[in-house]
Computed example of a mutant assay.
Amino acid sequence: MSNLVWNYRELGNPWLVRILSKLTKEKCPFLVFLVETKARKQKLENVRRALKFDGCFAIDSMGSSGGIALLWKVDWNVRIISYTRCHISASVKEGVNGHKWQFTGFYGHPKTAKRKTSWQLLEMLKPPSPMAWMCAGDFNEILHQEENKGLPVDPTNKLRTSGRYEAAWDLKEECKKIVEYSWKGTSMGVEGAKTMRQRLIDCQRSLSQWNHKEKMIKHKDINHSMRRIRHLQETGIGNHLTEMQSLQKEVELSMATEEIKWRQRAKQHWMKVGDRNTTWFHLQASHRRKTNTINNLEDPQGRVLTKQEDIGDVFTGYFSSLFTTSSPSNFEDCLNALDSKLTIEMKT
């Protein structure tokens, strides 16, 4: 039996959806309980489909806070018993002839003054013996002082996009150092324009080499961090919170980098379609690069041109003739045949 409980901290972060998808593939849970979704039921239905789960029962958030959801596989018979904005209780039967037990997903009230009410509710939810009971969630209680730490800073507060420069590189501290080092590597000479061009070439070359190395190690780093997080979850005794937060921040940063890269590549398709790093989304960005290339062109004489210089000349000639007058003559008769829209009073 495998179940997953996670304080989701807002479904609006697309890389968190991919982290959750990766976790469900690795752990293969039959039940998933999400806390602090900060989303409506329709959004959670989209998450259910993305995770390939069969059932979903969600409690809408109150504005921009709260929100819980329970997802399950069809292999288990799940029946919702009771729910509030702080909990979801369900009767669970494992398969046809499996064990029957009760699951309660619980979210303690975030305000300390109302925490007592949450505990009273939890006491009422306890099932009659001898039924097994599993209660899990975010109780908003600190068991160890080490847990009282701030949340990781969102790495996507300030993002820029420009030219061929990958906006996702802004999230990497190494990028700034590489640009500074490459730029200062060439001193400004007498011919300022040539020196400027050489600096840009050096920066481009250094960034390309650095990006190639990053791609090689990024996939390995994500898998290593996920394995380490899983190990700490299974063997930790409460003194591993700092390392857990550091690993989670690394994984979230890697996911955010990938998200920004494909958002920049697809441009307007991102806002129109709203896709989240799927195969179709990658193909859209790749297809756009392909359609931006002109391999051959037929000129007015019917010849097929393949050289870029000849293709450029055809475009130049076409638009030059399009916006150049042909110097017509004897068109007064045409103008006289047209009815005037100006009255005599208007002319005077």
Rank of each mutant, 00 (worst) to 15 (best):
L11W: 05
C56N: 08
N157V: 03
S65Q: 06
A50Y: 12
I294A: 12
C175S: 08
A132C: 05
F281S: 14
G55P: 01
Y83W: 10
F57W: 05
E146Q: 06
S64H: 13
N157P: 01
D275M: 13
E298M: 08
G312V: 04
Q301D: 15
R228I: 00
T195N: 14
D154E: 03
L143S: 04
K52S: 13
V179S: 10
H231Y: 04
E234Y: 00
F33I: 03
M346S: 06
H87C: 04
K213F: 07
Y318Q: 07
K126C: 11
N7F: 06
S2N: 12
K41T: 12
S64R: 15
S329A: 13
K38W: 09
E146Y: 05
T112N: 13
K43H: 10
G302T: 01
E345Q: 07
E147H: 00
L305T: 03
Y107R: 03
E174S: 11
T161Q: 15
S2E: 12
G98M: 03
L200M: 05
W270T: 09
K184L: 15
R205N: 09
T104S: 08
P130T: 02
R18A: 13
C86N: 15
G189S: 09
H144W: 08
N7A: 05
G95W: 09
K158E: 12
A285E: 04
H287L: 14
F33P: 01
F281Q: 02
T348P: 00
I81N: 14
G185S: 15
K41C: 12
Q308K: 14
A69W: 08
L200N: 04
V314D: 00
I229L: 13
D221I: 01
Q268M: 15
E345W: 06
N295F: 11
